[in-house]
Amino acid sequence: MSSNGQPPRFAPTREEIETLALVALSRLPSPFTEHLSDVVLFVEDFADAAILKEMELSDPFELTGLYSGRSIGQEAQTGDGPPTVHLFRRPLLDEWVETGVPLDALITHVVVHEIGHHFGLSDIDMHVLEDMVTL
């Protein structure tokens, strides 16, 4: 127990981040939800070195999420894997602490942004979609 009699609070786990992401995804309106069954969600502590190199990032804390795959409407190629959304726990937690934005709102923001890439949305469209999800 901590000095205030409460159990110690630890940083949210990957599983807790995944739960928040799944809640955000579940709030997406139709027709978006109808096109998400093949999208795979991963929660990892950091992006790996290959991703950072590809993104030309030297600091792993700079990347909170990543969409990989073809946008809806792009022709699939032989050998394409399923589209994926990666959330990077440690950068998300740092941003959460630094900004004071509620964690569920931050996760929703990143998830909507990454899913927006799946649909080929513009940044403006992503903001509109995020507003629909957070209402």
Rank of each mutant, 00 (worst) to 15 (best):
L36W: 09
T108K: 02
E44M: 07
R9V: 14
A47P: 13
A24G: 10
S30I: 00
M1F: 14
F88L: 12
D59K: 00
S26T: 10
F10D: 15
G81R: 07
E18R: 14
F42D: 14
L52S: 11
H35V: 05
G100H: 00
H109R: 10
M1K: 14
E16Y: 01
T78N: 11
P83G: 06
D48V: 02
D45S: 13
S122K: 04
G73M: 03
Y67R: 05
S37V: 03
E54C: 09
M132G: 04
S68W: 04
P82I: 06
P83T: 03
H118G: 02
G79C: 08
L20Y: 03
V133E: 06
I72K: 00
I17W: 15
T134K: 10
E98H: 02
L63E: 03
F61V: 08
E56R: 14
T108P: 01
I115R: 05
F88V: 14
D125F: 06
G79F: 06
L87E: 05
V133T: 05
R9I: 09
Q74D: 12
A105F: 04
A50L: 09
V43M: 11
T84Q: 15
I51D: 15
F46I: 05
D131V: 05
E75A: 14
L41V: 10
T134D: 03
T33K: 15
L87T: 08
G73P: 01
Q77R: 13
I72Y: 01
S26L: 00
R90F: 02
F32W: 02
P82E: 13
P29C: 08
V85C: 08
P83L: 14
L106V: 00
V133L: 08
P82G: 03
M126W: 01
L129R: 07
G100P: 05
